[in-house]
């Protein structure tokens, strides 16, 4: 295709792209406006203010960001280790019952979260983990998705590395933790992004399992700011929403390169 034909197409693509981020523009601008001109389309620079953020900081938002960071990080790290171990065992080790274990684990993929949310709530509550970090974290660690992707990855992993490790006198576990796992970055990076965002985005589970305001995660805290008053205070809501969005925006720009590769790894294969 000639470059000439590409110019109108490029303009079209960029315009559509700008439309895509227009809502984010209104979020950012709106959160700096005075309550009275929050709906004004023009931006009057002498009327911008930080007061909305001051008000937002008085809501449980900041605390909830820490809670979300804690929960998402712990879930991600623990899940990655557990899933890598299982994926490795299923891909590289021989043991009786392998096919059955793999089939059973994969079959849990068919169970959508919303279907088990009620019994999951009861099980977690009966284990004494309701209204605690444990209840927010532990049930979210286990899913067959990561196990499956690790297994795919380790099936194509070069055998020579493990053999060299065994020659050095390392055990299977030693070879895995010292040699194989550190070389698993191509799968660990996309899964880290995937697990972290999924947990950062989680709303339904924290809503159900935790009633303690101190442990609110960011999604629940923001939903409460939105629904707090009958007449919505838009400047406060937008400022709070922007604060909640910042950690992910930062992560997005750092990780965008990996995000693209991650889509290739986790999306299709």
């Amino acid at each position: 295709m000639g470059t000439k034909r590409k110019i109108p197409l490029s303009i079209f693509a960029i315009i559509c792209g700008i439309f895509m981020i227009l809502p984010i523009y209104f979020l950012v601008i709106g959160s700096f406006k005075m309550p009275n001109d929050v709906f004004e389309l023009e931006v009057n620079f002498s009327h911008l203010t930080f007061d909305n953020f001051r008000a937002a900081f008085e809501t449980p938002i900041i605390r909830s960001i820490w809670n979300s960071l804690l929960v998402s990080t712990v879930v991600t790290v623990v899940a990655l280790i557990f899933h890598a171990m299982s994926g490795y065992a299923l891909a590289r080790l021989e043991f009786p019952g392998k096919t059955f274990v793999f089939g059973w684990m994969i079959s849990t993929l068919m169970v959508p979260f919303t279907v088990i949310m009620i019994p999951l709530y009861m099980v977690t509550k009966n284990l004494g983990m309701a209204n605690s970090y444990l209840g927010l974290i532990i049930p979210m660690i286990f899913n067959a998705y990561g196990i499956f992707l690790f297994r795919q990855f380790y099936r194509d992993f070069p055998k020579e590395l493990e053999e060299a490790a065994y020659m050095e006198g390392l055990s299977i576990a030693g070879a895995f933790f010292r040699i194989v796992l550190p070389l698993s970055k191509p799968i660990i990076i996309p899964l880290t992004i995937g697990f972290f965002t999924a947990n950062w985005n989680n709303y339904l589970w924290p809503l159900i399992i935790n009633q303690n305001e101190k442990l609110w995660v960011v999604q629940v805290a923001l939903a409460n700011v939105i629904g707090a008053e009958h007449e919505t205070q838009w400047t406060l809501v937008l400022a709070a929403a922007l604060v909640c969005a910042l950690p992910m925006f930062i992560l997005f720009f750092i990780m965008q390169k990996y995000l693209v590769e991650g889509v290739k790894m986790t999306g299709i294969k």
Partner: peptide
Amino acid sequence: TSVISAAI
């Protein structure tokens, strides 16, 4: 996130 999108 979904809730931020709802707010916007």
